[in-house]
């Protein structure tokens, strides 16, 4: 934890990373100043887009000693305000899972090539980004820890499947290759507590390392201080749990 007599500096800027289909997409990167080595985190933005909250979260990870990078998964929808771009993606039915995975694979490669990384990388996401984080941890090699915050549609019925989301992330649980932290709200409708229980049962069945926390009196998006869903107690506790979990699994030599 930061001490008041400690030097702190940070660099935060827009960068380019390789994406799906040979594209170059933009990303927001924040890191502590200094030689490191630092652990890395890939942040996966939520349905409302590559927005200010995600820039703040990226800098928060850097403040806590991580090289944090958040790719713009809506890059191909054109440019404008984050809301306008996200609205276009919403109209299109979301971004295809395979495209997201390739964008994340490119982001991970770029992150792992940085000279000040300690060799450990986690992946974090909220809302649709929580779902994508879980999917990435199951499908892509190279992540050492995953944080899924209220990712909806991890558990999907056949009627929920679409050409862009053709397989439920739950179906890849056997391939989950790193420890998982899940944070959820009891009042959430996507995922519901029942869906979280189904997810947990699959993790147990496959012998995976995980910890799930279900907060009472919290719904979807309880970290978002700019939305009525914000719940101060669960949000503060949730961030503590995230940094304890990542500290345990991404520390140098962990």
């Amino acid at each position: 934890m930061y001490q008041t007599n400690q030097y702190e500096g940070m660099l935060a800027e827009t960068v380019s990373v390789p994406g799906a289909g040979g594209d170059t997409i933009n990303a927001y990167l924040a890191r502590p100043l200094g030689a490191g080595p630092f652990p890395g985190v890939v942040l996966i933005h939520h349905m409302p887009g590559w927005d200010e909250w995600y820039r703040e979260a990226t800098r928060k990870f850097a403040h806590h000693g991580y090289v944090a990078v958040c790719p713009n998964l809506y890059f191909r929808a054109g440019h404008g305000t984050p809301e306008d771009v996200a609205a276009r993606v919403r109209a299109e039915g979301g971004v295809p899972d395979e495209q997201v995975l390739d964008d994340l694979a490119g982001t991970l490669r770029a992150l792992r090539a940085l000279p000040y990384l300690n060799g450990k990388v986690g992946v974090f996401g909220t809302c649709s980004g929580g779902r994508h984080a879980y999917l990435a941890a199951c499908r892509l090699p190279g992540f050492d820890a995953v944080v899924d915050c209220w990712g909806g549609r991890v558990v999907m019925t056949p009627a929920d499947l679409t050409p862009r989301q053709p397989v439920a992330p739950l179906d890849f649980t056997a391939d989950l290759a790193c420890p998982l932290l899940g944070l959820f709200g009891e009042e959430d409708r996507s995922p519901t507590p029942e869906q979280v229980a189904v997810h947990e049962a699959a993790l147990k069945q496959h012998g995976k390392t995980y910890e799930f926390h279900m907060y009472p009196q919290a719904g979807h998006g309880f970290f978002y201080h700019d939305r009525p869903a914000y719940r101060q107690g669960p949000a503060v506790d949730g961030w503590h749990k995230i940094f304890a979990f990542l500290g345990k699994h991404l520390a140098h030599g962990a």
Partner: peptide, 9 residues
């Protein structure tokens, strides 16, 4: 896209 309930016209 948490619900994916969308139609265009």
């Amino acid at each position: 896209m948490c619900t994916m309930i969308v139609k265009q016209v």
